[in-house]
Amino acid sequence: MLHAINQFLVKINSLDGFLHWTIQRLSALSILFTIPLVILVDHVYFLVILFFLFVFHISVGIRTLIDDYIHDDILFLISSTFLRIIIIFLLKSIFIIFIC
């Protein structure tokens, strides 16, 4: 599962700027459409989906900042690795809190 997530994030990071911008905006719109579902339906599944969307949106945005503004190779590698560790930790936490 983690390998599939890692491949997906690598594929997103290799996209051109416009497609990356589009994915960022679509994830923001999906968050905005999921918030009323969480409030109106009041089901834990929509809350889990909302948190996964938050993690995805944040990871894409921070990855864009890393790609655009960090030019040192070692610092880039450290930042990318740290971002992946944070994403894994957040996904694990969401799973433990809501699923288990």
Rank of each mutant, 00 (worst) to 15 (best):
F89M: 09
F82G: 08
V38P: 00
I49Q: 04
S59P: 01
S14P: 01
L15N: 04
I96G: 02
I86F: 12
L9Q: 06
L75Q: 12
F51D: 03
G17N: 09
I99V: 13
I58A: 11
L2W: 15
S80T: 12
W21T: 09
L83I: 00
C100F: 14
I74E: 15
F95E: 10
I35G: 02
L26Y: 05
S14G: 10
I58D: 10
F46K: 00
I94T: 12
N6G: 01
I58G: 09
L77Y: 13
D73G: 06
F51T: 00
I39N: 02
L19V: 10
I88T: 06
S59L: 00
I97N: 03
G61M: 12
F89P: 01
L32F: 15
L53T: 00
L40Q: 07
R84G: 08
F54T: 07
W21S: 09
A4Y: 13
R63W: 04
D42H: 09
G61I: 08
I78Y: 13
F56S: 01
D73Y: 11
Y45P: 00
K92L: 15
D73T: 12
I70R: 11
L19Y: 08
I87F: 11
R63P: 02
L37F: 10
L75A: 14
S93V: 04
T34I: 12
L75E: 14
R25Y: 05
V10L: 11
G61N: 13
I85F: 15
T34K: 00
T64H: 08
F18G: 04
